[in-house]
Each structure stands twice: as structure tokens, then as C-alpha cells.
Design a binder for these strands. Structure first.
Lengths: 184, 184
DNA sequence: TTGACTATACCGACCAGACGGTATAGTTAT
DNA sequence: ATAACTATACCGTCTGGTCGGTATAGTCAA
């Protein structure tokens, strides 16, 4: 068995638990069981629960920014970063892009365990605001698009669905269009 | 003492704990201490932690919808419900409207304790979507405004600030304007 | 008026179980 | 052999919840 997969397996197990059973059940025993190893094995990889959640946060920030950058590159032009943010935040339902689950789960876990652990995510805000500001489109418009995207995924992370699938798609299209059309 | 004040005192204490110390520290002992009574006294009013959080959720839904309705009435005309939603979600920083704290705290507490407890909030989505749809303005536009408002307060509930105070005000103004101007 | 009884509000000691974390011995791959 | 990894047993603490009890105020028949 590929040994280095273990750490990732642990993180994914932790994400699943948060998403399906709630932060309160994110216990070391539960994570170990879900990842298919013992608590001792889990602690070997992550010294403490805090370390585990910190790793989830790192993974989330890195994977999210990578996905934004990936979309931005195969797009280009004014507004491409904003569009990347939207696409990275709101992958097509049913797509294989499961990185989004990590984002939700990690943030919820951090918030649930200790609000201070949200810091790594909060720390990226300034950089993202700067990216929006210099994206070649109206900065206020870019920020509105970004916030609406946040509104969707954050609601969905809570299990709340502000719009059914069909309408959701139209909303995402509208957000992407707002980054292109100079009028509205 | 006015007996029913106690229940409110308990709920407010619980909100404060969630907001300042995190869900993990929302224990019955902590709530009782913060509300100025014993655990026995707390349990007398709310049979279990679950019941306490359910009460927080009820309070949140009722108070939020009341605030939306309040704003809508003293406004009127097309888009007034959408504007009410924005104003109820995003009170001026420093205003005495602390109802928003209840919304954040209750949702976080529910999510932290058991995701299923978010249900009372999720259940209102359809009604809100209907209100947006029949608000006299472009429904898609109304939904985008609502989602952006959600994006702001949900970020802030996590302790994340996507925009500094000055820019935040401009964003809120832009959202309100979007419910009035037929163009964009 | 008085005494029996009830309802409401609250107290705080206590308990069983769960939790994060430690210790340590064992296993496997190189 | 050694380092990477895993399993099991265990510990102290904390948590949600229980339970027996107290205090006060009100009702009501005699």
C-alpha cells in the first residue's frame, strides 16, 4: 500500500465525517475508523486534533487556489480570475471535482473546533481582494460576483439550497456573464 | 423576576458563547454560568442541549423574518423585500441591531452540534425564494443580490472579512441600488 | 387563619460514557 | 538493523444528563 496516501486518506475521512455527521462527531476515534486505521496510527501522522484540522485548512487553501489558477489560465483576459473563483467555488453538480468538499469541511471543522483556526483562510482574503481588484474589470462588480459565489457555496455547505439545480445553473451563468459584459 | 426573561437570557448567553468562544465551548455548564444560573436551572428551561439549540434556531428564524418585514414595510414598492433582506442581513456595523448575532450563532451552533438541526432555517428557503420571485423586480437579479448579502454575512460569521468597512458600505449600497435600477 | 397541597423556578452533587492524548509493544518494507 | 508505520491498552478530564432537594408563591377547604 502506498504509504504516503495515508495522510490524504485521513484528511478525506475527516472531511466526510464533518460533512455527513457534523463537527461534533469529528473525533479522533471516528476519523481513525473511517480512514481504516487505529487511533495510534492516526496520531502518528497528525500529532493532535488541532494539527489534523490545520492540515485540512492547508489542503483547502492550496487546493482552492490551485483550482482558481487552473481555470484562470485556460481562460485568460479581463475577469478571468473572477471567473476562476466562481468556477472553483461552484463546480458543476456531479462533476468529479471533489475539492470543494474539502473547503466546506475544513472551514466547518475549524470553526467548530476553535474559531482561531480559520486564520489561514482569513489570511488569504487580502490577496484575493487584490486579485479581484486587478482583474481587468470593474472591481466592485468583481467583488459582487465573488460574494454571490460565496453565498451559494456557503449556503450549500450548511445543507441549505437557496435555488434548485436548474435555477442554480442560470445563476452561475449570470455570474460568469457579469465578468464579461461591461454593461449588466 | 419576570420568569420568561430567563429563557431569553439563556439564549443570549448561548449566542455570546458561540460567537466569542466557538461552538466547541458551548457546553451546558458554560451556558448556565453565562446566564447566571445553575445547570439544573438551565435544564429546567431547556430539557437538553438539542432543545436549547432548537430554541436558538426558532428565535433566529422569527427575528430575521420580522426584521425583513419591518424594513420592507417602511420601504415599499418593487424590490422592497429584497432590500429588506439585505438590510436585515447586513445592519450597519455598530448599529444596535444585534439580531444578526443570533442568526450567526444559532446557525453555527446547529451546524456544530448536528447538521440536521439546520432544518428550520433550510425550510424557509422556498418561502424566501418565492418572495424574491414576486418582489416586482427581475427575479434573477433579486437572487443575485440575496446571495451576495449571504456571502458577506456568512463570511463575517466565520470571522472572515472579504472587504474593509469603507468598501463594504459601497458594496451594500450597490446591492440596494441593484434592486432599484432596471439597468445595472 | 391555618394547614395541606400544588406549581414554578432553581440548585448542585453525582454518574456513565466519551474524548483527546500517552505509552508501548508489535509489524512491515527496505 | 532500522525507520516507518500500526495496534492496543490505558489515563485524566470533561460533558450531557439525572436526581433529590430547596424556596417561594398561590389555591382552597375547614
Amino acid at each position: 500500500m502506498a504509504r504516503s496516501d495515508t495522510k490524504i486518506r485521513i484528511l478525506e475521512a475527516a472531511e466526510q465525517i464533518v460533512l455527513t455527521r457534523g463537527v461534533a462527531r469529528l473525533t479522533l476515534d471516528a476519523v481513525a475508523a473511517a480512514a481504516g486505521l487505529s487511533k495510534g496510527g492516526l496520531i502518528y501522522h497528525y500529532d493532535s486534533k488541532e494539527a489534523l484540522i490545520a492540515a485540512m485548512m492547508d489542503r483547502l487553501v492550496a487546493s482552492f487556489e490551485a483550482r482558481v489558477e487552473c481555470w484562470r489560465r485556460e481562460d485568460g483576459g479581463p475577469g478571468s480570475w473572477t471567473r476562476g473563483y466562481v468556477r472553483a467555488s461552484l463546480p458543476e453538480p456531479g462533476s468529479t471535482d471533489d475539492g470543494i468538499a474539502a473547503r466546506e469541511a475544513a472551514l466547518i471543522a475549524a470553526m467548530g473546533n476553535d474559531p482561531a483556526q480559520v486564520a489561514p483562510y482569513a489570511a488569504r482574503q487580502e490577496a484575493w481582494a487584490e486579485a479581484l481588484r486587478t482583474d481587468g474589470i470593474d472591481p466592485l462588480r468583481a467583488m459582487l460576483v465573488r460574494l454571490a459565489a460565496d453565498g451559494i457555496w456557503m449556503n450549500e455547505a450548511l445543507g441549505v439550497h437557496p435555488a434548485p439545480t436548474e435555477e442554480r445553473r442560470r445563476i452561475v451563468d449570470a455570474l460568469l456573464a457579469m465578468t464579461r459584459d461591461p454593461a449588466a
